[in-house]
């Protein structure tokens, strides 16, 4: 098991990682952030991606889908943004957010590593 800080540090070791955050999507506030650049304010990303997650949850409710979101991938011209919802009972309402440089990242590997980090994370 790893704590928030260790998990975020590990997320930054993923190839191409630019920044990562652990976000509480009931409040839109980040529990922890790491990395980021002048152009990638992770607190803004936390608040904005909270809206993304909430919108998807609401849409699934409207569609009558009795499913859980495992992850969300957003592909930009030069970046990948991965959102992975935490599934353990105690960590409900949180997601991991990872921004990757598209040129340096291996998406399949990044997704796999982020899943492992999520499984080990204990808040």
């Amino acid at each position: 098991m790893a704590n928030t800080e260790a998990s975020l540090k590990e997320a930054m070791t993923i190839d191409g990682a630019i920044g990562a955050a652990l976000v509480d999507y009931s409040s839109g506030m980040a529990l922890g952030t790491i990395g980021g650049t002048k152009d990638l304010d992770l607190d803004v990303a936390a608040a904005g991606n909270t809206d993304v997650v909430r919108a998807k949850v609401r849409t699934m409710e409207h569609l009558g889908l009795q499913e859980e979101i495992e992850d969300v991938l957003i592909t930009l011209g030069s970046q990948y943004h991965l959102i992975r919802l935490l599934t353990s009972a105690s960590d409900n309402g949180l997601f991991l957010y990872l921004a990757l440089d598209r040129g340096r990242a291996n998406l399949a590997m990044a997704r796999h590593q982020l899943k492992r980090i999520e499984n080990q994370l204990e808040v």
């Binding site: 009931s26 409040s27 839109g28 506030m29 980040a30 936390a46 608040a47």
Partner: peptide, 10 residues
């Protein structure tokens, strides 16, 4: 209560 406090702050 369901407001996005992160966004509210910003």
């Amino acid at each position: 209560p369901r407001a996005n406090v992160g966004r509210l702050h910003l």
